[in-house]
Design a protein around this nucleic acid. Structure first.
Lengths: 396, 396
DNA sequence: TCATTGAGTGAATCACTTC
DNA sequence: AGAAGTGATTCACTCAATG
């Protein structure tokens, strides 16, 4: 494949300044060359980038396949396996050193809230996973990509190798605030939690990049649907997604389509050219198709006493549990006084009082306590909803 | 749990001399105490056994879960997690040293044609896999056990951890003559090759061993169906199957039922007693019955976002009700955004959105929402039918 | 006897903000 | 920085009790 255009010139016009949600906190992505492909070795290129500037990394490193000679199908045709120089390593030690180097470089550019995805097969994923742990990343999940159409095992000596493994990891143990769009994933999955096993076809047909001669441009091009789920799961619109082994550019193309910024690193000029052309052809989806639905977690906090301030609840009102057995009186300061045993006479927040009344450690008072209305007994959470809609109008 | 009988006395009467198919080749299993449980540390016990005498090893080592605090369900009940002393290690280094020791001990007793299975989760399997490679085992497959009924992620902070991983490895690179019952597996799998992803329920109900008080005897008892597929895949009747971490005895019980000899090693007397009682109750199947049971086909469950993943619906597409009055936009993550009142702007699954649009509690989005096609307005359920036929290949 | 309901549970690395 | 307070969060299946 030949280089058909001037990548440098094209790149310069495309580099933008990312509008990062973390700019205010000093984790600036301002010096990050977003929406461009960096041509060069991934460790060298990563070390030029600002620290703590990237929201999510997806990495598809060489698999170190260790094929022992060529493989033929039952009809004696040759299997076009991965035998490229970039997939060759002298030894496991060499592969480990390589893995360690790029993982450390990735950790430096990740924001503290950022997460890393790595995909691999049994040839390399165990080494990658162990190294992640050794380097003090924190594994959140391992995800299995089940292939609907894997290559069969031609010799009949093993099980059909029908899956690959991804590891999703936070920057360090105890990392807080990483992005996981739980509600969106659940809503998209028949309203049940998304599981750790995903089913997708391998990349083929029109999606598979081919050169003029009809040969595949890259031997291990990943399906866009797989990357779409990864990016939709663990990043927000406007985030920066980095791929240190860009290859044919799937990560960048999908990131662009989904309204994320991308940074791609690729050493091979032919791959980089193909990826750039592919990315240029991508049209981002309209914002309305991307915006995340507000979640209960992110809803503005409402203190119970603001309901009293607004006159939605009067001091002296009696609250009860759903079955109207347990009773508590609303005091002027927004605390409750239990009027029934257990806990008779005890005073505390709606949450503490609910916990005491049930003999539990914790309780969500908003859903436990009910109030008598014209339409019958309703959870005080319905008053909070009224409160929140009033706040929303006021904010406009 | 108390020791209820004299294990030593019972064992003596049960130890037999294995009729090994390799006796002629000098790989004698004659001094192997088969069909018995060896009580003690697995490395110590393994070192007493003759070298090159075992056909297959299945190992379920401690996972080193590193659980932090306690976890509660949304209903405030406590999750009974694995907190046993045997699962606690000082560090990754300590776990690696432990792994290295037992793997070396296993390699010594394996015949050159023998294979090893190890099961684990993301907490330990990467370390085990890397160590296998370091010790010059040769990985044949990694197998994913997909659980039909995993424990959910109660806090909604990760993907449901719905699988465990097994590694199947030969004793060394280039090992020849290992057992893989390819034809039987294929025949049992509707005449297509058995894949690397297997679907089984977790062990519960009557199969789960309970003590007198009704508590589970072992926290991590594996399902017999899983072991049956492993043993039927990679051993022959009359072979010796060894389990260095016997626990509740699943490996031995299944091996006995399937006409294999077993050697179990277990350090904990309570576990060993329970396993012995369980094994004693097993009746070997008649030889004619020692074939693989056909694998149950999974009814493919199709989530709406799989239609997007496969390109059958594009983000931004408008869906309507049957009369084209209510409209909703398909978003990139597979949720819908309502474009008409009531519910304008609200986002949810196809089911939630349909319910909101109609002012109902629930709704079957598959039949409510329609899409414009060349043949007119059709329910999105018709697309699901297309999807299901495509997936029939991939489903087990 | 059978259908329905409710409680229980499984290898789990399961918050975030404010004071 | 550490402690305290708020309040968000579950799927498939089994078994016992009830109707």
């Amino acid at each position: 494949m030949k280089v058909v255009r001037n990548g440098e010139a094209r790149r310069a016009s495309r580099i933008g300044v990312v509008r990062s949600r973390d700019t205010a906190s000093g984790l600036s992505s301002a010096n990050l060359p977003v929406d461009s492909i960096l041509r060069g070795d991934c460790v060298a290129e990563l070390s030029k980038l600002p620290a703590r500037s990237v929201d999510m990394v997806f990495a598809d490193p060489p698999y170190n396949l260790q094929l022992q000679g060529e493989l033929k199908r039952p009809d004696d045709s040759r299997v076009d396996a991965v035998d490229d120089a970039w997939d060759k390593f002298e030894s496991f030690e060499a592969y480990d050193a390589f893995t360690r180097a790029w993982l450390l470089a990735v950790r430096r550019v990740l924001k503290p809230t950022g997460t890393l995805w790595v995909i691999g097969s049994y040839h390399n994923i165990f080494r990658v996973g162990a190294m992640l742990q050794d380097l003090d990343f924190w594994i959140l999940n391992d995800i299995v990509w089940r292939k609907t159409n894997p290559m069969p095992n031609f010799r009949g000596r093993r099980f059909t190798n029908a899956h690959e493994t991804m590891i999703w990891a936070a920057r360090e143990p105890g990392a807080r605030g990483y992005t996981f769009n739980y509600e969106a994933l659940k809503a998209a999955n028949e309203d049940v939690q998304m599981r750790s096993d995903w089913l997708f076809p391998i990349c083929s047909g029109h999606e598979r990049l081919k050169d003029e001669a009809g040969h595949k441009v890259h031997p291990t091009q990943k399906p866009e649907a797989l990357l779409a789920r990864v990016i939709l799961s663990a990043s927000k619109p406007g985030d920066v997604v980095l791929d240190p082994f860009l290859g044919s550019g799937t990560t960048a193309a999908v990131a662009k389509r989904l309204g994320r910024h991308f940074v791609g690193i690729e050493r091979d000029p032919a791959y980089a050219d193909a990826a750039q052309a592919r990315i240029d052809a991508v049209e981002p989806l309209p914002e309305a198709a991307l915006a995340l639905a507000p979640t209960a977690r992110e809803a503005p906090r409402v203190a119970f006493n603001t309901l009293l301030d607004r006159g939605l609840v009067a001091p002296g009102t009696m609250l009860t549990d759903a079955k109207a057995r347990v009773r508590a009186m609303v005091r002027a300061d927004g605390t409750l006084s239990l009027e029934t045993a257990p806990g008779l006479g005890q005073i505390g927040s709606i949450h503490r009082a609910g916990a005491i009344a049930q003999g539990l450690e914790a309780c969500n008072g908003w859903t436990y306590w009910h109030i008598e209305t014209r339409e019958g007994l309703k959870p005080i959470d319905s008053l909070r909803a009224v409160m929140r809609s009033e706040m929303a109008i006021a904010a406009e």
